[in-house]
């Protein structure tokens, strides 16, 4: 069997940038630019549209008994969770987190999970369409609460079923 070769690569990047790290002022300016984007929720629309489209496709495939693995199901929810928080839609992140935690523990795509997936799809769509007000709104909290309870019921049922 061939042996592994371990070698150092010339650090061209270091030669170009020198040392001393980033100036705190540069990092602060970069953070301000990021926060500008974060405080503009409508910028999130492009990302959300893509994720919602993928979720709709997944639901279509599930309803037509097409093979779909857990990773494909999770991908748009993971994207929504990560990007929602970055673009000021913390409520989307909040809604996605519970289901994601549950999906990361589930191995099989079963009917209950598909139902849960549809609920998430509808909730997120409502949030993005503005039919539910964004972060901090009582309705958002209520939806999040309902989804958390549904996740708990799912966990209890499948834990009980072994």
């Amino acid at each position: 069997m061939a042996k592994a070769r371990i070698f150092d690569v010339e650090n061209k990047l270091k030669q170009k940038v020198g040392g001393g790290g980033f100036l705190p002022m540069s990092i602060q300016r970069a953070q301000e630019r990021i926060e500008e984007c974060q405080s503009t929720p409508k910028l999130f629309a492009e990302i959300a549209e893509k994720c919602i489209h993928d979720m709709r496709r997944n639901i279509f495939l599930l309803e037509h008994d097409k093979p779909l693995n857990m990773r494909m199901l999770r991908a748009p929810i993971l994207d929504l969770k990560a990007n929602g928080h970055m673009f000021g839609y913390k409520s989307v992140t909040m809604v996605c987190s519970d289901v994601l935690e549950l999906m990361q523990k589930s191995r099989d795509v079963n009917a209950d999970l598909v139902d849960l997936y549809k609920i998430i799809y509808n909730t997120i769509k409502l949030l993005l369409d503005g039919e539910i007000a964004n972060d901090g709104d009582a309705m958002v909290k209520a939806f999040h609460h309902e989804i958390a309870l549904a996740c708990e019921r799912y966990k209890k049922k499948y834990r009980a079923a072994g």
Binding site: A4, R5, I6, F7, D8, V9, N11, L13, K14, V17, G19, G21, F22, S26, I27, Q28, A30, Q31, R33, I34, A82, N83, H85, M86, T93
Partner: peptide, 23 residues
């Protein structure tokens, strides 16, 4: 994600100042 500027800067610093050998 979600990341902040400090995290981005830290990752860039890591590849500048703490490069790893290649295998």
């Amino acid at each position: 994600k979600p990341f902040n500027a400090e995290a981005l800067a830290a990752k860039l610093s890591a590849i500048v100042d703490r490069p790893r050998a290649y295998v």
